[in-house]
Design a protein around this nucleic acid. Structure first.
Length: 490
RNA sequence: GGUACCUUGGCCGAGUGGCUAGGCACCGGUCUGCAAAACCGGUUACGGCGGUUCGAGUCCGCCAGGUACCUCCA
């Protein structure tokens, strides 16, 4: 069953066999959120994508160090007059301390991630906690001659860098095209070229997030934190760097440039990028104002959301698409995911009821093999799920006595679902529905027991009346051979 | 304008040269007093035109439509 794990590397635009730098160990860095607002559906995609990568690498035996940062020093706002710090802007709006804003949204992000059953990364460094490392990086870049200071700010000299290295190799851009096509922006006179990016920015008087540095009181540039923290916790070379496709350029390109310029070589072996979630075919994003927060999905409190969707529905919805494809949001698709997940989880429960026999008519080993093959093919979770659904049919047939399985096969079957559904895909059974307190439970049970008595007497009128009125109140009634089951639909 | 990517059945979404993806919906059946639920089974497809090939959803070209990045963004 030893198979190579293939990972699509954005750098080579090909699937490559994963070869760790140190056998048995894997280092992974993923760009985390900028904490200036509640997490939306888009944020859940990289979190879940790389959560599955993290889980799978561990499952196949790697000791993984997974670093996912929190960006809390703010980035420049595009439409602000003088390039205002995002977090500072929000803080002034809300009349809060910047770090209070950071804490609020960090807490919110963590809560949402827990709801989505996203494992905590091994290290979750904050940009504000690594100002010294970023200053060191900037100093090094100045020493090597790939950066210049102007009026208290420090910029990366892209054209100089491009003389010795390939700037644009990750995003497939050519420096000549970039020079020609870069838009003219206001307030960039400090830069030698519009391609250059800030490594350190001098703070304007109204800018309240600031730290001392050799050049000015200011704050680090947008692209320095990831490389500074990645190097610190994973080393000058590490295995995997992940993030959203929208970060490819300029963010990740700038990271490569800083690595090469400061260290003389690249840091990352495998670049992985998840695609976007779209809404009506358009990217869901903060700047487009068409995003729906995770809390709004969980509560149903958004005009575009027809009903509340549980965190596991969201997770399953995302895993049903391959991470490198765009995924379009719609109520119909989410409701399909909700029902599909329910069917899958019910089948998993049903495995317990299967009675093994002396022989087997089903091929459990093949199912397992297909699941691993799908995961090893660039984490193809939709195929894993399709295979698991094939297994659902197998499980149901076993329960119906239409197929047979021996004890060994049954043990393997249980293991497959434990491993793939829960350990790797990270799904979990949802909590029992709220509002089902003991009093309610007893009352509904009482009514349904009355209904059974009516049924015994063949008093169909009464039996139907109880059932229909409960349904009208929002209950779902399921008759069973030896009684009944019910649940309260939200 | 530059660069890259995408277009699969009612909906979502895999698949990259020959073999049923899968889910939801729909239809039929089993079960049931009747239902519901559950289960089983089944139908509908590869944007258009041309080319390569014994054979293309899959490779190549052109056309149409769409998206992303080029500016903070997951």
């Amino acid at each position: 069953m030893e198979q190579d794990l293939l990972i699509y590397n954005t750098l080579s635009k090909k699937k490559e066999v994963f070869k760790p730098i140190t056998p048995g160990y894997a280092g992974m860095y993923v760009c985390g959120p900028t904490v200036y607002g509640h997490a939306h559906l888009g944020h859940s995609r990289p979190a879940i994508t790389f959560d599955v990568v993290f889980r799978y690498l561990q499952h196949i035996g790697y000791k993984v160090r997974y670093v996912r940062n929190i960006t809390d020093v703010g980035h420049l706002v595009a439409d602000a007059d003088e390039g205002e710090d995002k977090i500072a802007k929000k803080a002034k709006t809300d009349m809060l301390e910047p770090m209070e804003v950071v804490q609020t949204y960090t807490n919110s992000y963590h809560r949402n991630m827990d709801q989505l059953n996203v494992l905590h990364p091994s290290i979750e460094p904050t940009a504000s906690g690594h100002i010294i490392e970023q200053i060191e990086l900037v100093r090094k870049l100045l020493e090597k001659g790939y950066a210049y200071e102007n009026n208290g700010s420090v910029y990366f000299d892209v054209e100089k860098y491009a003389q010795n290295y390939d700037y644009g190799k990750l995003s497939g851009r050519k420096i000549e095209d970039l020079i020609v096509n870069t838009r003219e922006l206001e307030g960039q006179d400090e830069k030698r070229s519009s391609l250059d990016f800030a490594l350190w920015k001098k703070a304007q008087p109204e800018h309240i997030m600031r730290w001392p540095s050799p050049w000015s009181n200011g704050f680090p540039g947008w692209h320095t934190e990831c490389i500074a923290m990645g190097t610190k916790y994973l080393g000058e070379r590490f295995d995997i760097h992940g993030g959203g496709m929208d970060l490819l350029f300029p963010h990740h390109e700038a990271e490569i440039a800083q690595s090469c310029a400061s260290l003389g070589h690249e840091s990352v072996n495998y670049w992985m990028h998840n695609n976007m979630i779209t809404i009506n075919g358009q990217k869901m994003g903060k700047s487009l104002g068409n995003f729906i927060t995770l809390d709004e999905f969980f509560s149903g409190a958004h005009p575009l959301v027809e009903k509340a969707y549980s965190p596991m529905t969201i997770r399953f919805f995302i895993l049903q698409a391959h991470y490198r494809s765009t995924l379009d949001f719609s109520n119909e698709a989410l409701q399909a995911a909700e029902k599909g997940l329910d069917r899958l989880l019910k089948a998993v429960e049903a495995i317990e009821k299967i009675k093994p026999t002396g022989e087997s008519t089903v091929d459990v080993a093949l199912l397992e093999e297909k699941c691993y093959a799908a995961m090893n093919d660039d984490f193809n979770t939709p195929i894993v799920i399709a295979n698991l659904f094939d297994g659902v049919r197998m499980i149901n047939s076993l329960n119906d006595g239409k197929e047979k399985i021996d004890a060994e096969g049954l043990g393997k079957l249980m293991n497959i679902y434990q491993v793939f559904v829960f350990d790797i895909l990270g799904l979990k059974a949802e909590e029992a529905e709220t509002g089902k307190n003991d009093v309610l439970k007893n009352i509904v049970d009482l009514l349904l027991n009355l209904r059974i008595e009516a049924k015994v007497k063949k008093d169909w009128a009464t039996a139907d009346k109880i059932r229909n009125e409960l349904i009208a109140l929002g209950f779902e009634i399921k008759d069973k051979k030896d009684g009944f089951e019910w649940e309260l639909k939200s």
